[in-house]
């Protein structure tokens, strides 16, 4: 039957088109994930030929490991600074930039610049800027009569300093997302509200902008959390976990265990913990995205 044949042929074409992607999906996501889970119950180390099943030993070790616990706390601390900092600043900037006509593109370019630039290169520059004796920031502080601040070598300051750099990098990105949300608010509403007596910027923000920007804000919060949770680059370049472990974060711990000390099995436990957090954020994100269609 020709019809049946055509139908079968379409099925084959579809499967053929999807096959490469499906195989890669298996090879790059599904199988590695299963291997990862399996490794977490072994004592495998890269380079060693044999391994043994050790049950939950790695898990027990991870949860009692002071370093790992500290890196988890540090990561969350970092998120706790970067999240409000970058989201609130970006929202403010976006609202103000959105109303500009002639200067809008200037501000857009400036604030977006860190997103396109290579973070590693810029981290090197930041390191120089923050240098205790040579850096321009400390030079300015000295000029103003303050004492030098050892931004990256003081254990209390190192992580917050990295967080400021994180905010520096994320503000423009979040601003662009907010601007997209802002331009989807009909201009009519602002005009109607202007006639209804919503006269100043604060009223306008509270009555129109903020409520209608709600879904965008939730989305930005989740993506920012995930990005901040994946902190690695600035730590690897600027502090390497120091001083005194104050900037040890979860991805850096995984990197050290898995690819520096080659304690593969132990690193896979840490990776699974990392994945758990990301999945939690992602589930929230999916939930939020579902609710994005509003009103």
């Amino acid at each position: 039957m020709p019809f049946r044949r055509q139908f079968l042929w379409q099925k084959l074409t579809g499967a053929g088109f999807a096959l490469p992607a499906f195989l890669l999906l298996l090879a790059l996501h599904v199988v590695p994930l299963l291997v990862l889970a399996a490794l977490s119950f072994t004592d495998y180390e890269l380079g060693v030929v044999t391994f043994e099943w050790v049950g939950l030993d790695n898990y027990a070790q991870a949860f009692s490991d002071e370093v790992f616990r500290r890196s988890l706390v540090n990561t969350l601390y970092y998120v706790a600074i970067v999240l409000p900092g970058s989201v609130i600043l970006a929202l403010l900037v976006a609202v103000l930039v959105h109303q500009r006509k002639r200067t809008r593109s200037f501000y857009e370019i400036v604030y977006f610049l860190p997103v396109t630039s290579t973070l590693i290169a810029m981290a090197t520059v930041w390191q120089f800027l923050l240098h205790p004796s040579l850096g321009v920031i400390n030079a300015a502080l000295r000029k103003l009569g303050f004492s030098e601040v050892p931004f990256l070598s003081d254990p209390d300051l190192a992580l917050p300093t990295l967080a400021v750099i994180g905010i520096w990098q994320l503000v423009g990105f979040n601003m662009i997302l907010f601007l997209a949300g802002l331009s989807s608010i009909p201009r009519d509403l602002y005009e109607a509200s202007a006639i209804d007596g919503v006269g100043n910027g604060i009223d306008r923000f509270l009555t129109i902008t903020w409520p209608l920007l709600g879904p965008t804000t939730l989305f930005v919060i989740v993506t920012t959390s995930i990005t901040a949770f994946k902190l690695f680059d600035t730590v690897a370049v600027m502090t390497k976990g120091g001083p005194q472990g104050s900037t040890e974060v979860i991805l850096y711990a995984i990197y050290l265990e898995g690819f520096y000390y080659f304690r593969t099995a132990y690193a896979s436990v840490l990776t699974l913990v990392f994945l758990t957090f990301v999945v939690i954020f992602s589930v929230i994100q999916t939930f939020v995205l579902d609710r994005r269609t509003h009103y």
Binding site: P186, D188, L189, E191, A192, S193, A194, I195, D196, G197, V198, G199, T207, I208, P211, L212, G214, H294, Y295
Partner: peptide, 30 residues
């Protein structure tokens, strides 16, 4: 004068109702 100081009211083609507010809140806003 700014729009709301002019003692004018306007009905828009799109109605420009505030989508996140109830009818009551829309009416009460001015």
């Amino acid at each position: 004068l700014r729009p709301h100081e002019r003692r004018v009211a306007m009905v828009f083609q799109s109605y420009a109702l505030y989508p996140h507010m109830t009818v009551f809140q829309n009416l009460a806003l001015p």
